[in-house]
Design a protein around this nucleic acid. Structure first.
Lengths: 338, 338
DNA sequence: ACTCGTCTTTGAATCGTTTCATTTGTTACG
DNA sequence: CGTAACAAATGAAACGATTCAAAGACGAGT
């Protein structure tokens, strides 16, 4: 078993100094053609591969950016992550993705981990209250960008989408269809969800006889959505809401599964349904799902850009970018009012 | 800006030797209660965080496992990845996920990257021919486990699902419905897809008057599926297949979108449709999608287990685990034959 | 022949940990 | 009181790369 060769082995083999080998790798222009060739030949023969740990140790920083999301299984986040990865790649960095699963302790765990790794910076969709930790990170030279969450601009940068506006758009759309008794499904303990709810309530308050009830889904997955859907089916028709706004598409698809499975409730005739995020699967649902589209690629790309800005300014200048969501109407909210 | 404290700073602050601080962190039993407390207090006061690069450098190996998948956007892979992460966590390791996007050069890029990181081991769903590289990795003490791909057991371990059987199951099911002119949609240049096709062809060959045509989708996403669907819609009804088997659910959902959009083709009456993977969204499709279910959690978990076995045996013992897929019938292939 | 400037190459110092052979301290026992 | 046995603490040596001041090589100009 041939152990991995070090830069020293290469130097010996090529009969040059270690510094020269390092220069071949990092500053090829400083090295003469002849020695460069000899060194490269030795590298190939010995199968030398740089040891990143040693390089990082010397550099004091890694080429890694940490990203903590609420749920990688959610296409919204995987799309943001992919965009961030692509953007980071152009800077020669790698994105490490951690899934907090909306759990503050897992979130803390990943923050510790990333700190041990001396990441260049941190992108995070926070669950718990991370303000304190972000401050200490900044003090230690690790810039942070909040993702999908608005920040104090004197603390760190952020990139987000106007959730309240999105919630308003969704509810307004349902009200425009003539629906009056609305239901909101989600986990309001999550800030984004709370904001969407707030926007929805604002829209409702603008219409005299409209109401909105809140159904806590205790989770943001297809499965929890199905549970809420079942509880709706069990209600008497009069007690059912006329329209349901789910705080994300997974929930909405779950609700849709329950409602259509039993066939007693029609979408959109009996209940109009709208989700949030406009994931790829929304369009191919049983009843194509209306949704609020968020610019995921822009979010991921901008997050990396803001991180770069933070790095350049030494963590002193912060900026918040807020995108505007967009209503996408499909069959689940189609049809004439009343 | 307080720079990060090192173990040496902690030692000075607590008035002990660096070795003692290290022992507090790694072998608490070797240290007396009194000094332990003093050291821990200093650690807290200085906000000391271990430098992972230095630790790895000394250890010669990281606590990281590399995983290269064909497409993180595909729920099949994100599910496998999540299971692998959970399993790795119990061993105190972290999984780094790289997305090859079915591109051999990106695959090679991630292999280089992981090698530089001195990962404990590598899990990979290969695109190109990686046999050679796996050999050199093994020689250097980096065990590899093929994921979703059967391996030479004298080269490395592997965990996979019997794709040919899955393909057979799918085609057999379509034939059992009475359909005779089948179509297969996928990218046969990918091995898994080729095997599924082979299985399907075997099933077809067992029925005298059955045929199967192959439609190369040039990609395995919803989008490419939609393109194939459009081409089917453009055909005259007589030329259309009676049943379509897509090599994954994303493709199938794309095909379904096209077919249902135009409303000229009914599923399953005119064309029965079956996918592969049974992703969460299959059940909530316009027409709930039949599929072939693969045990994703078991795949991810077993991959980590096999990697652990490889490590223990020093990369000498290899084992291949093959799971059996399962047919899931839903509405997209329901209904009476003929 | 000598000096100056440019281009290469050298090799020791450094990053922050872990390891381990030694030293120091403490207790128990003959 | 001497010493053996054990526990605790020490600190120098690695790990493998990068950096940088210094040395070396070489040609041009005087």
């Amino acid at each position: 078993m041939s152990q991995t060769a070090s830069i020293k082995d290469v130097a010996t083999h090529a009969q040059v100094a270690v510094g020269t080998v390092s220069n071949v790798l990092n500053y090829p222009d400083r090295v003469s053609q002849r020695t460069k060739e000899r060194v490269l030949k030795s590298i190939a023969e010995l199968g030398f591969v740089r040891n990143d740990a040693a390089r990082q140790l010397r550099a004091g920083q890694s080429r890694t950016i940490g990203l903590i999301v609420l749920d990688v299984g959610n296409p919204f986040f995987s799309s943001v992550a992919r965009a961030a990865e692509d953007a980071a790649a152009t800077l020669g960095s790698v994105v490490l993705v951690g899934d907090s699963g909306q759990d503050a302790s897992r979130e803390a765990h990943y923050m510790d981990l990333f700190q041990e790794q001396r990441v260049q910076g941190l992108l995070i969709s926070p669950v718990g209250d991370v303000g304190q930790r972000i401050d200490t990170l900044r003090e230690r030279g690790v810039p942070t960008v909040l993702v999908d969450e608005l920040a104090d601009t004197d603390r760190c940068s952020s990139v987000s989408v106007d959730d309240e506006e999105g919630g308003y758009l969704a509810a307004k759309h349902l009200l425009d269809l003539g629906r009056r008794r609305l239901a909101f499904v989600g986990t309001p303990s999550i800030r984004q969800v709370a904001s969407r709810l707030k926007g929805a309530q604002r829209a409702v308050s603008e219409v005299s006889d409209a109401t909105i009830e809140v159904l806590d889904s205790e989770g943001q997955t297809v499965l929890t959505g199905r549970k809420v859907g079942n509880s709706l089916v069990e209600r008497s028709p009069q007690e059912r809401p006329e329209a349901v706004f789910c705080s994300n598409d997974l929930l909405a698809l779950g609700v849709m599964q329950s409602l259509t499975m039993l066939r007693t409730v029609r979408i959109p005739e009996d209940i109009a349904l709208i989700g949030y995020d406009d994931i790829d699967f929304a369009i191919s649902a049983v009843v194509p799902l209306s949704s609020i589209r968020q610019p995921t690629e822009a979010l991921g790309r901008t997050a990396i850009e803001l991180l770069a800005e933070e790095q350049e300014s030494g963590g002193t200048k912060h900026r918040s970018v807020v995108f505007t969501p967009e209503l996408v109407v499909r069959q689940s909210t189609a049809g004439a009012p009343n």
